[in-house]
Nucleic acid binder design. Structure first.
Lengths: 358, 358
DNA sequence: ACAGCATAGTAAACCGATTTAGTAAGATAC
DNA sequence: GTATCTTACTAAATCGGTTTACTATGCTGT
């Protein structure tokens, strides 16, 4: 009779394709899957397994390069450690900054995330959250997007501005933002101001505009319909700001200051002003919004209202994970307000001495 | 004896938490899970199930809002329809553009993707691909990152520039890119050129620099060590370009043209030049690289070598899915070359009449 | 009358883990 | 000597689907 070989019946396969499974590892060790699982996960049940055996198991796991299937684990534990992020589009500076804040916190906590971008198409805004849920995300973060309430995982909206049940809103203090900008311009001596509102689909547009009107009223500044433009179109190119500004100039109403919806449109606006022979800031002061990276490196460097976009992303991730891991602790905040900051650079100055020159 | 109620024993639960399961749906219908599964998936096995029943099943599924668990399905079918994207960081214009190209194709084909950013930290570059694999991604796309070969799923690198087995490289034709830029400057009459190389960690740096030297030799242009700067530091802010340019100016060697590693650094460079009293393009012409969105809206608008970043992302996704779904068809291309395009704007012009004025 | 085939499904294995309940062997207590 | 307690595990259920193999019934052909 031949000497008995070490247990190596190996019903579990190990063709390079899939990596080694728990079953394979257990058989290799001559132990049950349960025992191996206990040790690998440092489960309390492992306390009855002697140190010697534990080391054997860990050594084998390392040697065979065992990596538990996250999918199998998710299925069993009903925990995916995955969340979904819904953004309008990726290329835009805004969403990218928020995402990088989100990512920071999520990866650090061992969560991964799916990103989907809907390009403002309604059917996608409806469908993606459901698809994400099907993929067992434990929560959703929506950036500048209104989450429908058909979703039953915790949600956090960055600039969502809609009262959706179960969704926490992270919003900028727009009142303060508008005050900062208008106050700054008023202090410089500006009275005739023009404004560029955001696209209708952006959830910030409405709130911010309301805040601007409020602030203007407080400062006793007139908001003329003729001097109020609105961005139009999907893209996030400076071209939109360029076009609106041309219209504002064409209407003939004089102005010495322009408050735009974001930095991108401010950049386009400055271009249009310059082409029309108006110098920035000598003839017209321009205040942007967001403080995207390149704002500081425009010529002239942009005065702008800074939104702490990265922080907003981080906060969103923090709140979401809190809500996921301790759903009962806090009933969950409805809204979290972050503060803007006025960054004064070179695109604003006193109005020209001959005011109203057009 | 009370009238018999419709079959509704319902061992399967349906508390709002988890949505309905196949088991619940099957019991609700009084059918087996298999039958329901066949119909839902339009599997060939469903042909033996009469239309009437099929409709009943589909109606119930719709009504109960049944959504199969993607995780359970993945486990059984060993297909996750998920891929992993590895980028240096998200906030940068470069990666964001490539990602948006990737996303376009992936979502369209029913795949989702995880994003991880490694911030050039080696341990993360090593670890993330393994973690992604553990999460059963079917392939990896690395952007400006060298994939280690310890991964055994198909990989595609965008600007990877390293010969990793099993990885397809999508690269720009850097020789042509360098030629376009230098030819353009030479045609304008420039002879004294300065250069800004990329950071050491960027995988494009080496290749591009080689191409620049080659092109310069062909055009008989001297590449002086003193007029060669290098970006230093993690961040992707224009500040880096600003600092390098200050050094170039400080060295005292005259130049009339500057070819930068990317648009971001070109923006910083222009700032530095201006502060030193050199006008762009009157005194110094500047050529950027990439053609990021804001390049067109700089002042002056940036002349730059355009990389088709979005397309590179889309191509990466296409190749990857091809390799996943038909692994044997093509042995798999080692390298795919895309062509650059010179975008001439306002930051380049003839050199000044008094050449070499410093 | 009975084989053979189509119809309309069902039972159970399976994917790869986690987890509960339980067991066998040896040590200790009384 | 036996009841009890540890110690060191294991068997089997489970998560929620997919898929293979099989069955029961009715109809057709000869």
């Amino acid at each position: 009779m031949p000497r008995e070989k070490p247990k190596h019946t190996s019903a579990a396969r190990k063709p390079a394709g899939t990596g080694v499974s728990l079953k394979f590892l257990a058989e290799h060790l001559g132990l049950s899957q349960a025992a191996v699982s206990f040790v690998i996960n440092r489960s309390p049940a492992a306390k009855s397994i002697p140190h010697r055996t534990q080391e054997l198991i860990r050594a084998a796991a390392r040697e065979l390069n065992y990596r538990p299937s996250h999918i199998a684990r998710s299925l069993r534990q009903q925990r995916s450690f995955t969340i979904g992020v819904v953004v309008p589009e990726i290329s835009e500076g805004y969403a990218a900054l928020v995402m990088s804040g989100i990512e920071d916190h999520l990866l650090q906590e061992g969560y991964f995330y799916f990103v989907v971008s809907h390009h403002h198409r309604n059917e996608l805004i409806e469908e993606y959250p459901l698809l994400l849920q099907q993929r067992a995300v434990e929560g959703l973060i929506a950036v500048d997007t209104v989450l429908s309430d058909r979703v039953d995982v915790p949600g956090v909206a960055v600039s969502g501005h809609r009262d959706v049940p179960g969704v926490t809103n992270i919003v900028l203090n727009h009142d303060r933002a508008a005050c900062l900008a208008l106050q700054h311009l008023a202090n410089l001596g500006h009275r005739k101001m023009a404004f560029i509102k955001g696209q209708a689909f952006s959830s910030d547009t409405e709130v911010r505009w309301e805040a601007v009107r409020e602030a203007a009223k407080k400062l006793n500044i007139e908001v003329k319909g003729m001097l109020t433009g609105q961005l139009e179109g999907e893209s996030s190119s400076p071209l939109l700001g360029y076009q609106v500004t041309q219209k504002l100039l064409a209407c003939g109403e004089p102005f010495t200051a322009l408050f735009t919806f974001n930095d991108i449109s401010a950049i386009g606006a400055i271009q249009a002003l310059r082409e029309a022979g108006r110098q920035v800031p000598e003839d017209v002061s321009v205040v942007g919004f967001d403080d995207i990276q390149s704002a500081a490196f425009q010529n002239p460097a942009l005065t702008t209202v800074r939104q702490p976009l990265r922080e907003m992303g981080t906060i969103a991730a923090e709140i979401l994970l809190e809500r996921i891991t301790a759903p009962t602790k806090t009933p969950h905040p409805k809204e979290i307000v972050v503060e803007p900051e006025l960054i004064i650079r070179a695109s604003t100055a006193h109005p020209p001495k001959t005011p109203g020159l057009n």
